[in-house]
Amino acid sequence: MTDDRSSRRAADGSSSRAAVGDAYRDADADLDTRPAAPVATRSPDEHGDVTVDRVALAEELAGAGITSAGHQATSDAAEYAMRLGDDALVLAQWLGMWISRAPELEEDVALGNIALDLIGHARSLLHYAGTATGRSEDDLAYWRDEPEWRNAWLFEQPNGDFAHTIARQLAASVYWFELYDALARSTDPTLAAIAAKSVKEVDYHRDHAVQWVLRLAGGTDESRRRMILAITDTWPYVDELFVDDELVERLAAEGVAVLPSTLRPAFEAAIDAVFAEAELERPTGRTAFIASGGGRQGRHTEHLGPLLAEMQVLARQHPGASW
């Protein structure tokens, strides 16, 4: 996954270079960066010289090559891609708020990495969704109002304390892993390409969440108390992820989408294994009034509005502007 990320960054960097052109000179070009020459009394630096070479460029958006080759999403596939894209973008927006506020530096980096991966997924999915109606990823991200968003409620729940963020990460990443693993075999080549790339990344996100659930549940009394509370608060939002409706049933019949209900057994098995090791119990009984799967129809909790208002504020101050 490190390679994926460096290549994505390299892709971003290269595009900025192309835009700037020859007029722009590298700031470090005229400063000498050569390491000091080894001298006779001392062997050449045993640690070796460190260089960071640019890796091969990856396509900036997964599946974009396929769509630019003329594959336009059907209106059903676009709606489906928008659901998945909104899930990823809304969670990325929350996770981005941890950067510079995490409990330790390693977590600033890790949560930042995860958010960055999710923005990548969201961009690919929204780009594809937009092909059905001639809209760009940014049209969809910045110019839709709350009732037009299709994310499930789990993803719009606030960060809370670190335990709540981890509980949300656990449910989200275990769900995504099962989803993308299956969706990589979609008959829709764009969705299959996006899923095949994303599944490798959410595999790491899942590992990150599991490790923290074990640490927090098995750490101090205080961390265990917080972890149990976070699981209790988060679990009511899990059911919605597995609700089937007419759209996914139509798409699943064509092999385009994965029927959410079919993912549940694998999800439960993975969660049970983690909870067994962490000595946690799966909360039962309480659900978040989500049996109807409100998020997929544009009905949301109170948390989405302010989140979108913040995300969209600058773009909406300058309609038509390019950034």
């Binding site: 981005g96 510079s100 923005i119 300058h318």
Partner: peptide, 19 residues
């Protein structure tokens, strides 16, 4: 500015930079 970056591409680049 991570939460308010005016495009998704800018958001990704800024996030990578701060990270």
């Amino acid at each position: 500015w991570i939460t308010r970056a005016p495009s998704l591409k800018r958001k990704a680049i800024l996030m990578a930079k701060v990270q």
